[in-house]
Design a protein around this nucleic acid. Structure first.
Lengths: 251, 251
DNA sequence: TCAATTTCAATCATTTTCGATCATAAACAA
DNA sequence: TTGTTTATGATCGAAAATGATTGAAATTGA
């Protein structure tokens, strides 16, 4: 049996079953274990599959990401709710800006196959967006060490070339007096610019952000519609609604 | 049996089964192994099929570029050599441009903890660059479906804001007449702009790119120093050196 | 925990495949 | 005719692929 032929069979088996044991592969190809092992090693180097003990598995692009995200991220369910609702605000043919950050990331699966154009400064969003067949543009800018978000003057400048039907932003803190704030001034300048070029703006924030303030000012509350969940206090709901439109997502 | 007749049989067999072993072909044609080998070599040169060890396979007539995954398949070691050498050209404090693409990707591990500033249009490079503590800026632009590379006018525009000590580019094809070429015009515009704003420019290309041409013109050979390996033919070395500086990396 | 089993990478001998070379025979030209 | 070109088949050493074996590492089960 030809090498290419054998490796094609391996690919086919994996497509069918997600994973396969070495023994299975030995049987269906009629080759020796050594040969199969060599094939798997080679194919893993080519990123065609992932070796696992005893066999091989189809590799999923996001294999590492969820684990990473789950660890770092708090209030996942709350953020999912926010993201789901926010995605429903987007209309066919819209051009939208998606801020970097995990809350916004969760919006992407809900955008699958919608005819929209997305601009983002979140490097980590890009593979996921492309996977979901979404036309994607990326802002320029300096890449932030931990999050890979694009920030700073350069990012803001490229944003000025666009006009958005809607902008979806994450922030670190929401307060009626301080408005929306975030720790990194380099980031705030990007968010500010997005708010300037967006027609309708939304800030997604879970309950932990409420009544907090961070170092860098972004904008006063009225600059965007605040999307949050029932988990925030009545008091906060009351206070913020005096300054801006606020949408409380019910679970 | 006539030569044409024999080769027609080979074509037919391939159409049926996608691939065929030399032994099979020897049997059905009644010719010797040597003859079949000669046929296959000849037919491969005419791009009628692809030789694989032990036989031949139908070649997929894809106009599109091979996906990133398939691309990574080939000549990894050669690319590593190129990347290693290219990295040695970078000086402390340099500002450099790193093109998207796997060959260039391999440069990154060699840049660890160097005091340099990198600008790239390769989304996939960013996490790796940050991991190695390298100051990283990203161009804007449209994200390409398969490779996540940033391309098009927007990418080129942001590049004009920078000046580089050195640019490192990948290309799909190198030819003394056609110069450097690549299948995607959206990509070529980015590479062109990089060449304009770079002080010293390098094109990294393995032997498979030599003497080939692709759809979109980037620049004539003299626009960059060609970095390649011993694997390319004497003839190509000779010819290209008439047009541009060429560095042949020894293993 | 320990022992048994499975899985693994590394190594080696064998087999297969390859390209190069040479000899032969047929086709062709002078 | 004779010499030349071309296609073919055979052979050979080198390179690559394969299969078997081994001891180490990981996993499992008691």
């Amino acid at each position: 049996m030809l090498t290419v032929e054998r490796q094609t069979k391996i690919r086919e088996m994996l497509k069918e079953k997600e994973m396969a044991t070495i023994h299975e592969l030995v049987e269906t190809t009629g080759s020796s274990e050594s040969t199969i092992r060599r094939d798997l090693t080679e194919m893993e180097e080519r990123r065609e599959l992932k070796r696992v003990r005893g066999g091989a598995a189809l590799l999923k692009r996001r294999q590492e990401e969820p684990a990473l995200i789950e660890k770092q991220v708090q209030f996942v369910e709350e953020k999912q709710q926010l993201a789901h609702y926010a995605a429903s605000l987007i209309k066919q043919q819209d051009c939208i800006f998606l801020d970097a950050g995990t809350t916004i990331l969760y919006m992407i699966p809900h955008l699958k196959d919608r005819e929209i154009t997305v601009v983002t400064n979140g490097i980590t969003h890009v593979p996921l967006l492309l996977e979901h067949s979404i036309t994607t543009y990326v802002t320029g800018g300096k890449a932030k060490e931990k999050t890979s978000a694009l920030v700073g003057h350069a990012a803001a400048e490229t944003l000025k070339n666009y006009r958005f039907d809607a902008c979806f932003l994450g922030v670190n803190a929401v307060d009626d007096e301080a408005g929306y704030t975030t720790p990194d001034p380099e980031e705030s300048v990007v968010k500010q610019t997005a708010l300037q070029v967006g027609n309708k703006n939304y800030v997604l924030a879970d309950h932990s952000k409420m009544g907090e303030t961070a170092f860098a000012h972004i904008a006063p509350l009225h600059a965007a519609t605040l999307v949050t969940t029932e988990d925030i206090s009545e008091d906060h709901q009351q206070r913020y609604s005096e300054y801006t439109e606020i949408k409380v997502v019910k679970s």
